[in-house]
Structure formats: structure tokens, C-alpha cells
């Protein structure tokens, strides 16, 4: 089915013509590569940030909190899934604007208004809003599966709390953490709403270019070329993430045997 969808997209042209000119046009345009770099860095930054920001929270809920608190926490994490991301993004826009809530609060303390939308900061806030609940949930999921005796053992062996986290908890939850980060990269890389609504398309990312290619002369084939480039990139990134996880596991199991 997936193959089929691709096939139809590539052949959906106003004049059925099979040439490489679309590929050449897109791949030789410098703005495409600028947008590519921007999308990649934005999504990468977002997935690194969200992983780091979410981890302590998931750690607390997964390993420190009582089962009751954990359950409530998990339910609270799921709650935003039931509100539209589009609405949340537009609300952020109003909140972060020059006359928004945040700048009003900063104003009380005598700060000048800070520009927080129509730039990378805005996009990143959007990405974080998009992926934070999912990442929290996945991290919580893999952290709560850890055998707590492992951590106790580490403590008993004289491991400080931070060492225990780094040497025991993180490796044990590695699959989940990397999976969550990969998810957030995939979602942020393809997200149109954050860079458009909060980033002001200034400058554009690949997902915005796709929309613009269609707008400018119904260039579905050229848009499809960008889409193929995006899919190939994401497959590479996800494969790399999988190799990181499973490759690591293999090494571990060898160490376990020796």
C-alpha cells in the first residue's frame, strides 16, 4: 500500500511526463538545502531537548513516585492528547506574542518585550508542545519497567544517586529513551504547524516548502521529490537510532556472558 501511494504520487502530474527535471530543479535549489539544514537542526534540537527535559520528570514518576501518583501522572500526560495541537499552537502564539501573557509578566518586572515568535524559539516551543506528552509517556513506560532491585543493588554497591541513574537507569531504559527521541525527531521534522504558526515561516522549513511547491503552479511532483528526500532522511535517522539501541544491547549481552 505504501509503495502504491508513492507510485500514484509520482505519477500525479498535470502533464503525464516522466523526467528527472523535477529532481534536478529541487535538488539544485539552494533554498531547499537551507531549509533542509534548518528542518534537520530544528528537529534534532527539539528531540535532544525534549529527551533531556522529559527524563527527570519521567524518572520521578516512574521510579520515585508512589503508584497512585504515577497513575495520576500518566493520566495527566495523556490529557493533552485530547485537545487539538493546532489550538494549542495558536494559543502559544497569543501567549508568546509581543503583547502576550509572558511578555506582560516580564513587563511587570521591568523587562523589555522579548521576541518569542516568528523565530526558531517559537518553532522549538511548538515542537516541544507536540512531542512532550508522547516522549514523557514512552520514557515513563520504559522506566517503570526497570527492576527497582537493580537500583538498590547499585546503591548497596556504593553508587551515588547520580551515578546510579547514569550507569543503571539510563542503560536499562535506553531502548525506550531512544525510541522516544526517534519518534520526536520524526514528528518534529515533518511538522508543519510549529514552523508556520509559531516560527512565522521565517525562514521556511521543508514541510513549508512542500506546501509552497503545490501553491506555486500545482507542483505536486516537485513536492513529492521533497517528500521522498524527507522520508529517506527519516529512515536513515531511525535506522541509526535502532542500530544505537540494538547494537548497544548486543555489546551488553556479550559483556554479560564473558
Amino acid at each position: 500500500m505504501v509503495v502504491m501511494t508513492f507510485w500514484t504520487v509520482r505519477n500525479f502530474q498535470l502533464a503525464p511526463d516522466f523526467s528527472f527535471s523535477n529532481w534536478v530543479t529541487i535538488l539544485s535549489a539552494d533554498y531547499v538545502w537551507d531549509a533542509y539544514a534548518r528542518s534537520f537542526l530544528g528537529a534534532g534540537l527539539a528531540s535532544v531537548l525534549v529527551t533531556l527535559l522529559a527524563f527527570p520528570c519521567a524518572y520521578y514518576l516512574g521510579l520515585k513516585a508512589s503508584p497512585r501518583v504515577r497513575l495520576i501522572g500518566a493520566c495527566l500526560i495523556m490529557a493533552p492528547f485530547f485537545t487539538s495541537f493546532l489550538v494549542r499552537a495558536y494559543t502559544w502564539r497569543t501567549m508568546l506574542g509581543d503583547q502576550g501573557v509572558i511578555n506582560a509578566i516580564l513587563g511587570w518586572f521591568g523587562f523589555e518585550p522579548v521576541q518569542m515568535i516568528n523565530n526558531l524559539f517559537g518553532s522549538i516551543i511548538g515542537y516541544l508542545t507536540l512531542v512532550m506528552p508522547l516522549v514523557l509517556l514512552l520514557q515513563l513506560f520504559s522506566l517503570s519497567a526497570i527492576d527497582r532491585r537493580l537500583i538498590e543493588a547499585a546503591h548497596n554497591l556504593g553508587c551515588g544517586p547520580y551515578w546510579a541513574i547514569l550507569r543503571v537507569v539510563v542503560p536499562a531504559a535506553k531502548t525506550g529513551i531512544i525510541l522516544a527521541a526517534a519518534f520526536s525527531f520524526v514528528l518534529a521534522f515533518g511538522d508543519l504547524i510549529s514552523p508556520q504558526v509559531l516560527g512565522g515561516s521565517n525562514p521556511p522549513t521543508l514541510s513549508i516548502l512542500i506546501v509552497d511547491q503545490v501553491r506555486g503552479g500545482l507542483q505536486w511532483p516537485r513536492a513529492a521529490v521533497i517528500a521522498v528526500v524527507m522520508v529517506l532522511t527519516l529512515i536513515t535517522v531511525v535506522t541509526a537510532a535502532m542500530v544505537m539501541t540494538y547494537g548497544g544491547n548486543r555489546r551488553q549481552s556479550i559483556r554479560g556472558k564473558s
Binding site: 495558536y90 506574542g97 509581543d98 502576550g100 515568535i117 508556520q196 504558526v197 516560527g199 512565522g200
Partner: peptide
């Protein structure tokens, strides 16, 4: 001089909120 490139909602919001 450009602040951003917006769709309808963005245009409305930017004019209303001084963007």
C-alpha cells in the same frame, strides 16, 4: 523589516496583538 509569513489566523493575530 519582515516579521513573518502568516496564514489568515496569523495575520489576524498579528494585527490584533501588535505583532
Amino acid at each position: 523589516n519582515v516579521a513573518g509569513f502568516w496564514n489568515f489566523a496569523g495575520v489576524f493575530d498579528s494585527l490584533a496583538n501588535g505583532g
